[in-house]
Write a protein that binds this DNA or RNA. Structure first.
Lengths: 265, 265
DNA sequence: TCAATAGTGTCTTTGAGACACTATCGC
DNA sequence: GCGATAGTGTCTCAAAGACACTATTGA
């Protein structure tokens, strides 16, 4: 262990601290805004207008300002990027990414968040972004085990954002198992088929119809029935009972995915 | 939405950035070093030697240095504070705490981590700490629902560290359910009774002996038996089979706690 | 009528809860 | 023998998997 000069070994600086006694950082928030559309899990990305990674797609985000908390910054950016200022949108912290070289320009620590939105409006490209759109995660070049053959038309992401997106997807996949969070993806009111399609899109596997219904309906407080039914659009079919989100947040016992590897390293 | 001047709306600053165009932050790591001893979940705290919160107990931690990642900073502080430089110690990121007023001296964003150690050595108080010791979490004044009557001899923590400790405890309690992480608390080799005592200490409830054994032994890769047995120390009893940690990290299906509230707000 | 979607019934299997029982040690 | 700890056997019940079946709509 070296003995290079460091500010206040193991603790914070004294009150009369020297602003140059510790390394200054930029702190940003990155947003993984997820939705389910067209039977697929999709994420909001913006196309960068300037170097580095000019032209590449990246997560929306921005600096944490002087007098706001990290969570306030995330809420603010979410409203700016999606046009959704609704405070009921599910937003949670994912993880913090702080490799020294993750941004070539300066030392940046980014607190990534996951937001789950139901039926979002078309995003608008901000002043510094060439474009903004939702991308299916299956079209992105993400780290981790690749299902099937390699595709050569995958979109590459800027910075370490591919890792963040992969982490966000795993977080959401896991949370559908032991929470009622899937309801956050469904515009209200929704049918049980809607909800099952969300599980199918996020997990990539289709839960058995009958068992899925039994599980959701026996989970007290996950969904509450609403008067009326929705006629199945278009080509026939029995109208479905409508539901809204219930007060429960945990799903105990959980609804487990079938195909998760037992051992991870 | 106001239109106050901000650096690069929604993205990072340009290459020739002005260091005063975004708010400078100090970035620290805080460590929740947990262990199980004397049948209780315990955490390493240091007593502060300087204001603010002089004399109060706080989590060990320190600044992230200029050329290290956040995780490297956490590993370095863990080695400095506990004397344990073993890279096999379980260390994971917990969450990031970034309220503007969490430190009265300056704007600090802290990335909290959880470390699980088995049978740690006595901690040594660093140069800036008056003391360092492990405290049972039951002796700390933590937020959240209080079990039983209020105690008046609880230790108060500095900054927002009580919240961090409460979050760390909930993380560990949950992870014992669906991972094999409890083995990280047990010095090897260990007996199934050792492992059960860890669950008891962390959850505050005692799993049924027979069902616990059945679950752990049927979970492939959680523990691997070792030749030999440990004579029960002192007052007699049948010697117990010894085990080491297995390669599995997930516990599927999970081992659920009995008494978790179904609905959280 | 058929296709399509919604919804039910039920048999089987897995695994957890409860708890009585046996085994092996030190004394 | 006793107390203490380790370990087994087994009955019951909750819940998931599998899958056949019925119900209600539009065309």
């Amino acid at each position: 262990m070296t003995t290079r000069p460091r500010p206040q070994e193991g603790d914070l600086a004294p009150p009369e601290y020297d602003p140059h006694a510790f390394p200054p950082f930029a702190v940003t928030v990155d947003l993984a805004v997820l939705t389910v559309a067209a039977g697929a899990l999709q994420i909001l990305l913006v196309q960068r207008d300037e170097p580095p990674f000019q032209g590449a797609w990246a997560l929306p985000g921005g600096f944490v300002l002087k007098d706001e908390s990290v969570e306030e910054a995330a809420r603010r950016e979410l409203a700016e990027e999606t046009g959704l200022s609704d405070t009921t949108i599910h937003l949670e912290q994912l993880a913090t990414y702080g490799a020294p070289d993750r941004d070539p320009r300066m030392r940046v620590v980014s607190v990534a968040h996951v937001a789950l939105v139901a039926d979002p409006p078309e995003p608008v490209a901000g002043g510094d972004a060439a474009a903004a759109r939702y991308w299916p995660l299956d079209d992105l070049d993400l780290p981790g085990p690749r299902a099937g053959r390699r595709r050569h038309d995958l979109v590459s992401l800027a910075f370490d954002h591919a890792q963040i997106v992969a982490d966000a997807r795993e977080r959401v996949r896991a949370k559908l198992e032991y929470t009622t969070l899937a309801t956050a993806f469904a515009p209200e009111p929704f049918t049980l088929s809607d909800l099952r399609r969300i599980y199918t899109a996020v997990w990539g596997t289709e839960p058995d119809l009958a068992n899925f219904r039994r599980k959701v309906l026996s989970a007290t407080g996950m969904v509450v029935p609403e008067d009326g039914a929705r006629p199945s659009g278009g080509s026939g079919g029995r109208p479905a009972q409508l539901y809204r989100r219930g007060p429960a947040v945990d799903l105990r016992p959980p609804m487990l995915r079938a195909d998760v590897a037992e051992v991870r390293t």
